[in-house]
Design a protein around this nucleic acid. Structure first.
Length: 631
RNA sequence: GCCGGCGUAGCUCAGGGGUAGAGCAACUGAUUCGUAAUCAGUAGGUCGCGGGUUCAAAUCCCAUCGCCGGCUCCA
C-alpha cells in the first residue's frame, strides 16, 4: 500500500474551448471491446481534457491511483466550473507503460467513478487505437496542468491516509507512563519527584507532548561549521552534509570505537547493499509497515529504494544462513554507511536529523525469551560503556507491551538497575510495532529536546516475515527471536550530542572540550618565535598523538587564542626558557600552565587514550600550510 | 508537505528605488613577539537563482531554491 516509486501515473489536464478526435487505426494492443465502451470519434466544446497514461508503478495499487486521479480531476473541474470531461488514453506521457490489462482496468474504474457524478458529461476515447485529435487550449493560468500520481500517497486533505497502519495505531495507542527507580520502585510519572533528575522530567514531558517550543536554531549547527567539522552542501539534497577533514576524522574515530565494541562483543561484521529492488516480495511486505519516506531511484526500467536501515540486508543474509541452536545467540553487525531517509524538509535539524546518516546496526538471533533477556542486558551494558566513551549523559526510556512486562518483572527491574538511574517506562496494552520491549538512551539537548541515541529492542515479528530459522535440539525448524541494537545510535547524532553538550557547558561559563581521543588536534606546539623551529621539530618527532605546529608569523597571544578557539586539549609553548630547562610550558583547557618535561606529559596523556582508537592528523602539520574551510 | 522568519564579500552582518558598506578572514609589507585578537596597505560582490513593474531594482511584486523555527513526523 505504501509501495510507490517514480514510475507512476501521469495525467495532463487541459481546459479547452473545443476538443475533437477520431480513431485512425489499430495498434498492437487494440481490443475491440474498447470501442464499445468509448466512441470512435467525438467532438465537444468547453471541456476539461484528461490525458492519461498508466505506468508500471501503478500496478501495485490501482485503487489508490484511481482515487487520486478522481480527486485531481474533480478539484480542477470544480475550480474551472466545467461540466464536460474528456477521458483520453495517451500513452505518450510515459516511457514505462503499465501492462494494457492494468491500464484498461484503471481507465474503466476512473470513468465509472466519474460517471457516478451525474453533473458531468463525459466523452471517452478508446484505449489502444491510433487517434487524431484537435484541441483549443484556453491558455489561462489554470488551463494546463500535469500531474504525476503516486499510489499510496493519497489525496490531500485526507491526512490520515498518509499514515501507515502502525503509525495510525500509535495515535490511538494508550500509554501508561511510569518512573522506575534502580532499586525497583515504580511510581506514576505524574507523581514522581523529578528534582534530582531534571532531564528525566524533560524527557517525560517531551515524550508525552511530543514537542517543545523553540525559536532558536540548535547551537551545535553553528559549532559544527565554526569548528570546521561538518557543513551544509548546497549541491546535494537537503540533509546530506559535507564533512571537512576534522569532522571526518571524528566520525571515523567514533565509528571505529563503536565497531570495536560490537565486534569484541561477538558481532560478525558484514556489509550489505545500500539499494534494494522495489519489487522484492519480502521487502515490499516490510515496506508496507512504514510510511513512504524512501529515496527511490530509477535505473533502466527498474526501481530501487535506498535502505533506511541495515535491517533487511541482514535479514536476507540470515535467511540464507544455516543456523542451529548451537550457534545461538548469533550476531550480525553492520556499520550502515549510509542509511537514507527522505524526511520532510521541515524535520531536518543539523546533525540531529539528516536524510543521510551512518548507523551501527546489530542483529542478534536468540533461541527463546530467556536468551533474549540475557542478551538484552549485555547489550544494554555495552551501550552504557559506549556512552561513557563518548562522555555523554543521557536519560533512559524503556517501553513494553504490558503482557510482556507483567510476565518478565525481574527483567524489567534488572534493566533499570543495570542503567543505574531512574528510567521512564511506557506500557502499551497492545502490540502495534514489531517489538515487545524497547530500551532507549535519550540525549537532552541545549533546547530541552530529546533525541534517541542507543537502542535495544526485542523483535517478535521479523524472523517469521523473512523466514529466518534455526534447527533446534530435535532437528526441527524454529523461528528465533531477534534483537535489534544500535549501540551508539546514529554516529552523526553522537556528534550532535557531543557538540550540544559543549554548547550547554559554554552557557554555564565552562570551557568546551572534546573527549581527548576524539579531539581532531590533540596537542599544538607554539614556538615563541621562529628561532625555535629546530627544537620544535625535535618535539614533533617524539609525540605519538595528533600534534600540529603553529609556525605562522603572528604574535603568540594570537596563536594561543586560535588554539583555545579550536578547543585543543594541550597547548605546548616552546621558547628560550624551555630550551634552557629542557621542558615545555603546557597550557591545558582549564587555563593552567605547567612546566613539564616531554616524558612526563606523555605519561599524563596515555591513560586518556586507553582502549580508544587512534588516527593520525587529518590536516597538514604546519598551520602556515593549512587552508581555511569555513570563513 | 503546511505556516512563519531569513538569504548582501570567504565568515558575521548593516543598508533599503538613483556610485555596494563595516568588522573579521585572505593577500602584500613591516614586526620576531612569553599565554585569548601587532601595525599599515591591497584585493575581494550577477545583493540566492529566474521572471515582472520602473527612466532606474540589492531595495517593490511574483515564482523558485536553500537555511532556521513551528506543525506533522522520527522504522
Amino acid at each position: 500500500m505504501f509501495f510507490h516509486g517514480i514510475l507512476n501515473m501521469r495525467i495532463l489536464l487541459i481546459h479547452a474551448d473545443r476538443f475533437s478526435f477520431r480513431v485512425t487505426g489499430e495498434t498492437s494492443v487494440s481490443m475491440p471491446s474498447e470501442l464499445e465502451k468509448a466512441s470512435r470519434e467525438g467532438e465537444i466544446a468547453e471541456c476539461l481534457v484528461v490525458f492519461m497514461a498508466a505506468e508500471k508503478g501503478d500496478e501495485a495499487d490501482v485503487d489508490s491511483v484511481v482515487n487520486q486521479v478522481i480527486e485531481e480531476v474533480l478539484s480542477l473541474a470544480d475550480q474551472l466550473g466545467t461540466r464536460h470531461l474528456v477521458i483520453y488514453p495517451y500513452a505518450h506521457l510515459s516511457s514505462t507503460l503499465s501492462s494494457p490489462r492494468v491500464a484498461v482496468r484503471l481507465f474503466d474504474e476512473i470513468c465509472r467513478q466519474l460517471q457516478s457524478h451525474d453533473h458531468f458529461k463525459i466523452l471517452r476515447a478508446p484505449f489502444g487505437y491510433y487517434k487524431a485529435f484537435e484541441i483549443g487550449c484556453k491558455g489561462h493560468p489554470l488551463s494546463e496542468s500535469a500531474k504525476t500520481i503516486t499510489p499510496g500517497r493519497p489525496a490531500k486533505g485526507s491526512a490520515e491516509a498518509e499514515e501507515s497502519e502502525a503509525i495510525r495505531a500509535e495515535k490511538t495507542l494508550k500509554s501508561e507512563w511510569i518512573i522506575m527507580t534502580p532499586d525497583g520502585e515504580q511510581v506514576s510519572a505524574e507523581d514522581f519527584s523529578f528534582a534530582a533528575r531534571p532531564n528525566l522530567e524533560r524527557l517525560y514531558r517531551y515524550e508525552k507532548s511530543g514537542t517543545r517550543v523553540s525559536d532558536q536554531a540548535p547551537p551545535h549547527i553553528e559549532l559544527m561549521r565554526r569548528m570546521e567539522l561538518v557543513d551544509y552542501e548546497p549541491g546535494a539534497d537537503p540533509g546530506n552534509f559535507r564533512w571537512y577533514p576534522k569532522g571526518q576524522l571524528m566520525k571515523r574515530l567514533a565509528e571505529a570505537y563503536v565497531s570495536g565494541l560490537v565486534t569484541d562483543h561477538g558481532g560478525m561484521q558484514v556489509e550489505t547493499p545500500i539499494m534494494y529492488d522495489y519489487q522484492h516480495p519480502k521487502l515490499s511486505l516490510y515496506l508496507q509497515r512504514f510510511p513512504a519516506r524512501q529515496y527511490v531511484l530509477l535505473s533502466g526500467q527498474k526501481e530501487y529504494f535506498l535502505r533506511f536501515a541495515a535491517c533487511f540486508g541482514q535479514y536476507l543474509i540470515q535467511h540464507d544462513m544455516q543456523i542451529s541452536y548451537h550457534h545461538l545467540p548469533s550476531k550480525l553487525y553492520e556499520l550502515a554507511h549510509y542509511a537514507f531517509r527522505r524526511e520532510q524538509s521541515g524535520e531536518l535539524a543539523g546533525l540531529k536529523r539528516l536524510r543521510t546518516f551512518t548507523m551501527p546496526d546489530l542483529h542478534t538471533l536468540v533461541e527463546d525469551v530467556e536468551q533474549a533477556k540475557e542478551e538484552f542486558l549485555r547489550q544494554t551494558e555495552l551501550a552504557m560503556q559506549c556512552m561513557e566513551g563518548f562522555e555523554l549523559d543521557f536519560e533512559v526510556a524503556i517501553r513494553f507491551v504490558r503482557d510482556f512486562a507483567d510476565q518478565n518483572r525481574s527483567f524489567v527491574e534488572e534493566i533499570t538497575s543495570c542503567c543505574g538511574r531512574p528510567a521512564l517506562m511506557e506500557l502499551w496494552d497492545e502490540r502495534f510495532f514489531y517489538f515487545v520491549a524497547k530500551l532507549e538512551f535519550n540525549f537532552i539537548d541545549a533546547l530541552d529536546k530529546a533525541a534517541c541515541l542507543s537502542t535495544v529492542q526485542i523483535d517478535v515479528e521479523n524472523t517469521e516475515r523473512f523466514d529466518i530459522t534455526y534447527v533446534d535440539k530435535n532437528g526441527e525448524k524454529q523461528y528465533p527471536l531477534l534483537l535489534h541494537a544500535s549501540i551508539s545510535g546514529s554516529i552523526d547524532r553522537v556528534l550532535y550530542a557531543i557538540l550540544e553538550t559543549q554548547a550547554m557547558a559554554m552557557t554555564k561559563g565552562r570551557k568546551p572540550s572534546f573527549p581527548f581521543w576524539l579531539a581532531p588536534i590533540q596537542l599544538r606546539l607554539v614556538p615563541v618565535s621562529e628561532k625555535f623551529d629546530g627544537p620544535c621539530k625535535q618535539v614533533l618527532k617524539k609525540v605519538p598523538y595528533r600534534i600540529d605546529y603553529d609556525d605562522r608569523d603572528i604574535t603568540m597571544g594570537r596563536k594561543i587564542r586560535d588554539a583555545e578557539r579550536e578547543w585543543i586539549p594541550y597547548i605546548l609553548v616552546l621558547g628560550a626558557r624551555e630550551v634552557a630547562e629542557q621542558c615545555l610550558n603546557v597550557r591545558t583547557r582549564d587555563g593552567a600552565q605547567r612546566k613539564m618535561a616531554l616524558p612526563e606529559l606523555l605519561a599524563k596523556i596515555e591513560p586518556q587514550m586507553k582502549e580508544k582508537p587512534f588516527l593520525g592528523l587529518p590536516l597538514p602539520q604546519c598551520l602556515s600550510r593549512r587552508p581555511i574551510f569555513v570563513g
